[in-house]
Amino acid sequence: MILMSQKYKVNFTVNGDQYERYVEAGETLASVLRVELGLTGTKVGCDRGDCGACTVIMNGKAVKSCIIPALKADGAEIQTIEGVADENGLHPIQQEFVELAAVQCGYCTPGLIMASKALLDENKNPTEEEVREAIGGNICRCTGYEKPVQAILKAAKKLNGECL
């Protein structure tokens, strides 16, 4: 006998759009975003909360979506990398990542951008230490963190209206 697991209804907002889906009890938020909604900008690396590639913003805070049960996201407001740019173009963090070439293979980039966006959303003027802390759970295996840190600090200045 095959035991079918029960499906649960989950409602959440992703990048401003309301979604309703039926998911299995053991499903993760990362998997629902990628498979059910097709938002594959959120990456899954380790699938156990270590690498940070799957970082999204949930109710204003950076979280690792591979260790969030999908059903815990019921009622939540979620932002993924797909929702960061708007009709005016790239977000300043994205622009600075491009500008400073803070990207190599790119797999960690969406997670780095979501973690740093959550920081800049609540702290407009972070110190370098605060930036490093905010991306402390995001692992880059290509090159390192110097350029991302510089890009995030530059983006903060831009968001504050400082001329660069």
Partner: peptide, 12 residues
């Protein structure tokens, strides 16, 4: 990661 044998999720 996915909890492969999980059948129920309660959030009272």
């Amino acid at each position: 990661m996915k909890q492969s044998n999980l059948r129920e999720y309660f959030r009272p």
